[in-house]
Design a protein around this nucleic acid. Sequence first.
DNA 1: GCTTGACCTGGAGCGCACTCCAACTTCTAC
DNA 2: GTAGAAGTTGGAGTGCGCTCCAGGTCAAGC
Lengths: 118, 118
Amino acid sequence: MDTLRYYERIGLIDPPARDSGGRRSYSEDDLGWVGFLSCLRMTGMPIRLMCEYARLRRFGTSSAGPRKQILLEQRTSVRERIAELQMCLSTLDYKIDNYEMIERRVAELTPLAQEATA
Amino acid sequence: MDTLRYYERIGLIDPPARDSGGRRSYSEDDLGWVGFLSCLRMTGMPIRLMCEYARLRRFGTSSAGPRKQILLEQRTSVRERIAELQMCLSTLDYKIDNYEMIERRVAELTPLAQEATA
DNA sequence: GCTTGACCTGGAGCGCACTCCAACTTCTAC
DNA sequence: GTAGAAGTTGGAGTGCGCTCCAGGTCAAGC
């Protein structure tokens, strides 16, 4: 909720309606927008760019072009990020395999060591 | 290079050998380790945990267990992250499709508008 | 010999994205 | 009516991961 107020402060979300007691009450639309924002954040989009997107959105349909452009670029960057992570994943797999080989070697040696000390 | 000196300061990498002029000269092993560190960083592992891994590594084979454990957990987190990104990716796809539909609608309307103003 | 450029040092500073704070109001339950 | 929880405000503070700085040293090229 602190984060929502922060987003509101920096203009990422418009001030929502208030209930009788002055509390924020988010509409379905507000929540949908917040959900999409979280999605963008998860992809690593910087807040700055999200603000730009939010700004464009206020112009309505006329800003569809630039907004689509932003999403296209973000999609590319997400695909690259996934590819990168998959590379890292195989490095991890390799390393983990290595550790397992070490374990197996230790397991083989242990009985011998026991024999030796028996 | 600033980053390498920073990593050295916080104990992520051991001080490398120096050349005659006092400059750092990284061995093959050093570079391999740095490469693996970058891989871990790319997966989003916090520096703190990387330091812990580096600390364990200094104990040699005897710390293989805990190190493997760290990598296993990191692998899980990377897999989750990839899944998350793929969710976001399909949201982006959906949004982009939407923008394309808008464009198509505009493209259909434009000739009519031209007729109307002709 | 003298400039130039790359590296050295310890330490300060920065950008990002929150996150927490004290002081206050408001609704809810008892 | 009163205690407590859950919101409100503007503003300050935090944690992370670098990144930059001033001032110094060194090796190489002209």
